Simulated scan of single mutants.
Amino acid sequence: MFAAHPYTGQRIGLATMHEKERAVAPPFRRLLGAEVLPVPQLDTDELGTFSGEVPRPDALIETCALKAELAFRTMDVDCAIASEGSYGPIDAVPLVPSGVEIMAFVDRRRGLRLIETLPTHRTNWRLVRFRAGDPNIPKAIEAIGFPHYGVFVLCSSDMAHPVKTGLDTMEQVVATMDREARRSEDGKAVLIADMRAHRNPTRMRVLRALSYKLARRLARLCPKCQAPGFGSIGNRRGLPCEACGDPTHWVHFEIDGCSICGHAETRPRRDGRMTAPSRSCPSCRPPPGLGKSRLSPTVSAF
């Protein structure tokens, strides 16, 4: 099954301190026959931490690629993987948390760099503030999923020094919340979900889904040069209107490409749709400011 694939039997380094190999290794083994191994003696926290003590040095995608490159420092491999995640409230709906996971794959021998992303609403991310002795603290801790999910505690006036250790029991978390609240300027402590993969089963499941997405992309070989990773590089808009045939803003076709030789091919929309609804067509829609005819509610005025 894997005989013709370039990564069959290959060792791939995974830049992680948080056991992400549990999510990443199975898809790569199953789809590519490759062995994903955590990189030894690697401190990925130098490129940023979820708890905020160390900021990311660059945008999320660039930081993810930099993290993958770290694997080559201490591991004799040609290929490396890394992931980065960002979670928090949605701007438009502040009470609904969401996130995005990004995974980078680097093949330094072939000069290949691929980035795959996966937005998700599957997260237990929470950030809440309490005063010392608040009776609702235990309920908030349980709502995050503790003890199966980890938590951080922070002093609201000293967010750069979160408490990560010694939070193994409900009593320890509550006592830490009370202590950090008493030393804060506003009298509040912050409780936040621990989003590190080994302390967050939901995030680990999202990482596994993204790993399958990346492995499937790598499984496709370029029809021209046979390099791995032939896949989506964009799309072209202009799907014709069902009524008049003019181009609309709807996607007309997808474009797959190879990042090694530049070969590209188009493919139809996955839903098989050949035309766009007339309501999305600039030629068929009524001009702005014109409503419906006063003579008939079913006839548009042009």
Rank of each mutant, 00 (worst) to 15 (best):
A197F: 06
P97R: 04
I102K: 04
D134F: 09
N136R: 15
V173S: 11
D178T: 12
E62S: 07
F152A: 11
V128C: 10
L66M: 15
A140S: 09
L118K: 08
R113L: 13
K188D: 02
A80H: 05
T74N: 14
M177W: 00
T169I: 14
K164E: 11
V100K: 13
P162L: 07
N124W: 05
E101C: 11
F105M: 12
D134G: 06
L167F: 08
P119D: 03
D168H: 10
R126P: 05
I144F: 03
R179S: 07
Y149P: 05
W125S: 09
E142G: 03
R122F: 06
E185Y: 05
H121E: 10
A104Q: 00
S157C: 14
A140V: 06
R126Y: 03
F152N: 13
I192E: 15
H148V: 10
R203V: 11
M159L: 15
T202R: 04
S184K: 01
G150Q: 09
S98K: 15
P119G: 05
K164D: 08
D91Q: 10
R205V: 13
G99S: 10
D134V: 04
R203P: 06
A68K: 02
F130A: 00
G99T: 08
G88S: 06
F130E: 00
H198I: 09
A140G: 07
S98M: 15
R129V: 00
C155E: 12
G166R: 13
G150Y: 10
N124C: 10
F72N: 08
D107L: 07
V128H: 07
L114D: 11
D178M: 13
